[in-house]
Nucleic acid binder design. Structure first.
Lengths: 339, 339
DNA sequence: TTGTATGCGTTATCAG
DNA sequence: CTGATAACGCATACAA
């Protein structure tokens, strides 16, 4: 009497087979894509499975397949608009190719990233996507050696095993400078953060370099983490001086929003008449009427699509050199004076 | 010769045992909490494991344990500030109790929620947290019957198997009305959405009821999904009429931000002098200087803590009736006139 | 403490 | 097309 409803446990293929009067294999085949089962058997099995509430145990299946269908997504600050959108884009697409995302929220420090990467191995994830943080090289090696696909986003250290996805931060930063230069701004500032993320550093350096070529100096500020509050604080600091900057390139929209609010509400400045602001990421809030922030859009959908393509490739394909670089495109709104 | 480094596959306990010169069980015990292994054996095993890059296969382990350590989190609109914060709070805490969150991003429609719930069964998740969407009752039953913990957030249909977590939306809405009444507002509006989520409906009805008791009529608007754009559009509609409302209760901060921006930039109204606005959720943006939105804070941390407590309970404990109700607390900022 | 043997739920292989 | 059987990687009862 295994058919009673009291079973405080998952239903197994065995039980379904018994009820349907067929073998375990028949049940297995019914739920395996591309296996050959007669329509009658299939019907019997489905009926029994339905009444018992049977669901294939992907975990047991993966014991044989060596692929659990799990894709680990490692990231810190999931609640940040940009990261949240990336997470949304990824999980949605994973669903579509019948995989599933396992989110590992690291504290950001390297030891917790290491722990996260171990989890990815524990769960036999077929792939690991690292949104932020710097995982130790030896662990990455283990992942790759285990047949896992490792995808690193916005890191600059290019190891050979994993696939890298980067943004052309330098080009974007240079473009940002040009936009401000054309707007007639000469006293320039960069609002950055203390996070020291490779991409943020690249944006800062790229802007500085472009300005230097034009013979202009840039004041760089970093007051805390990459947040609205830090941007606000940076505004306080930068704008209280005697000759305030005429424009600020904020390496993140979040910083830009904070900076703009400081400019307006702490110093009564109007944007873009008295100060121009450029952000980065094109988060949703950048498009809100209060900000109308001119910024650079990260091609999240393209990136996510690219990742799915990487996942679809056969495991050992080293067709490309493993690095894909995307362009951030400027989004003109109203925080920079028209030329 | 299984020890060669070419193995494009995960390392098994077997391989570790061979290298360490011990039995498979010794390896197993080394990685099992509370098993007894001599220090010498332990060292040998650890060394071998390290050099081989061995990691316990949680999936195989769960075949025996009946608990994979996976907790499924089902939600739509992960990229929304509120949901993103909830996701962040949950995944962070799950890590802390050495579980891991599997995020299933549904399209929101019921068929995709059903698919998500099936995934939860496929992966033998020990628990499922449904952030949004209405899963079919029979599937929930299967989950519960399989020994899974099912936690539903903000649903109003109280089945007996799952644990429910709700917010006292009615009380909060009533409070919102009182706040506006004290500010001297008489022509009132509610800005809602077409989503028809139970909690949103409850907020709307609660506000209406409170107003009705005071003999005041309320204009209810819903122009689209629960978004900034919808709030903006609602503002356009509501404020263009001849006698515009003096206050708006927006059932979500996102709607509130959109509404405020419409009021200011489309109609040149100042908040709170010419129109008062109250939101709901206390998303990060509500605290930004541009909005300074008076709103109701959802106790996300409390809720997440409570969920962790539910997960820690023994599986069959029905100590409580299965429903926990939290209070949203008003956060006074500057979008409502002081009394 | 250690090793041996068994079973967890599934799929692949192979014989019918 | 179907059923029996052998893996898959692991934890545990049991015997040593």
């Amino acid at each position: 009497m295994s058919g009673t409803r009291t079973a405080r446990s998952f239903v197994s293929a065995q039980q379904v087979a018994e009820l349907a009067g067929v073998s375990r294999s028949a049940v297995s085949r019914t739920f395996t894509d591309g296996a050959s089962v007669s329509e009658t058997t299939r019907q019997k099995v489905m009926k029994a499975a339905d009444s018992l509430g049977y669901h294939v145990n992907h975990l047991a299946r993966s014991l044989i397949n060596e692929d659990s269908g799990i894709v680990c997504i490692i990231g810190a600050e999931i609640n940040t608009p940009y990261q949240a959108r990336m997470l949304d884009a990824l999980t949605r697409r994973l669903q579509a190719i019948s995989r599933v995302g396992m989110v590992i929220n690291t504290a950001g420090d390297s030891s917790s990233v290491e722990l996260a990467l171990r989890q990815t191995l524990n769960y036999r994830a077929g792939a690991t996507i690292v949104l932020s943080g710097a995982p130790p090289a030896n662990l990455i090696k283990t992942c790759v050696a285990s047949g896992q696909k490792v995808i690193l986003i916005n890191r600059d250290d290019h190891l050979d095993g994993p696939k890298n996805i980067t943004l052309d931060n330098t080009a974007a930063a240079r473009e940002a400078f040009l936009m401000l230069q054309r707007a007639g701004c000469e006293r320039l500032a960069v609002v950055s953060s203390l996070a020291g993320t490779p991409s943020l550093v690249a944006r800062t350096k790229g802007f500085q370099a472009a300005a230097a070529e034009a013979g202009l100096k840039v004041t760089v500020t970093a007051t805390g983490p990459t947040s609205y509050a830090s941007g606000f604080e940076a505004g306080r600091v930068l704008l209280s001086g005697s000759d305030r900057p005429q424009a600020a390139f904020c390496v993140t929209d979040l910083l830009a929003c904070g900076f703009m609010d400081a400019a307006r509400f702490e110093f009564g400045l109007s944007v873009p008449q008295e100060i121009c602001v450029i952000g980065f990421d094109d988060i949703e809030q950048a498009g809100w009427a209060s900000y109308n922030l001119t910024t650079f859009k990260q091609p999240i959908d393209q990136i996510a699509d690219h990742i799915m393509r990487l996942l679809a490739e056969p495991g050992d394909s080293a067709s490309d050199d493993g690095t894909a670089c995307f362009q951030a495109v400027p989004v003109w709104r109203r925080s920079v004076r028209p030329r």
